[in-house]
Amino acid sequence: MNHAHVGSSLAALAVLLVIAPALSGVVVRTKSAFAGRRGAPVGQLYWDLFKLMRKGTVYSTTTTWIFRAAPVVVLVSLTAASLLLPLDGQASPVQFSGDLIAFAGLLALGRFALVLAGLDTGSSFEGMGASREVTVASFAEPVLFLGFLGLVLATRRLTLSAMLGPALTAAWAHQTASLALVALAFFVLLLAENSRVPVDDPATHLELTMIHEVIVLDHSGPDLAVILYASSLKLALFAALIVEVAVPRDGLGLGWSLAAFAGGLLVVAMAVGVVESVMARLRLNRVPQLIVGAGALALFGIILLLR
């Protein structure tokens, strides 16, 4: 990999890190449009983060170093995971054979920290959220791997940079159905992993029904800012994954490629907003079925690829 690639991939990473909070705003704006309201500005989350950074922090006396370390670990694991994706459509800043497994492992690291921080408070509500988070993740992680397996079989490569980079363009010509199924599975995965409707409703105000929001009830001030930013980064990361699968950008110049990337992220965010507007959330015990269904989609894609 040459230095130009490092430069362009870091530029794409910068786009992702900066645009991430705006994606949550786009989702909210889309929902407002469906509801016939004006809605909060797209940049609302930036202001929220700015406000929280200037506030003080309240710690529960029950908590330990785990509660304090968790926001940092969550943010670091997601940043490290985003270093493995070829966000410029060509190559990622860090790549090695089998890095797709490390990508999933880093997501798991962030989840472990968040769940432990929830349990650290001793709150029944946060324990509830932690329990639901690991339940959803137990079914979601195999779907991520099935999707990756589909990409591996379509491109015959074992690095994310190759699977999602130039080799994918050629694969789309022959393996259209399989790749479309994988992209669809990844979209359901995005909804599940980021606690969106129909898995969870981020706009709910009842703790009993929450998943993600309820784990972080006790975080406040800058800690909460870090967690909110990390959540928006996670949404952006999965959106980026879908964009990379659905829109191969081989042969575009850096400028067009970045523009296509940012545009793709916006489209995915709007699609999330549409889903949230037209669907109700599922009963919690139906959620595993939804995610297993996404896995079945990816598995169909894989079966089509078997020779």
Binding site: G56, S60, T62, P71, S123, E207, L217
Partner: peptide, 18 residues
């Protein structure tokens, strides 16, 4: 994070019971 923390106040309280 530590640099931000130095600026802000820090308090300790019981876990929030909703």
């Amino acid at each position: 994070r530590a640099a931000v923390r130095r600026a802000g106040a820090r308090r300790y309280s019981a876990t929030w019971g909703c």
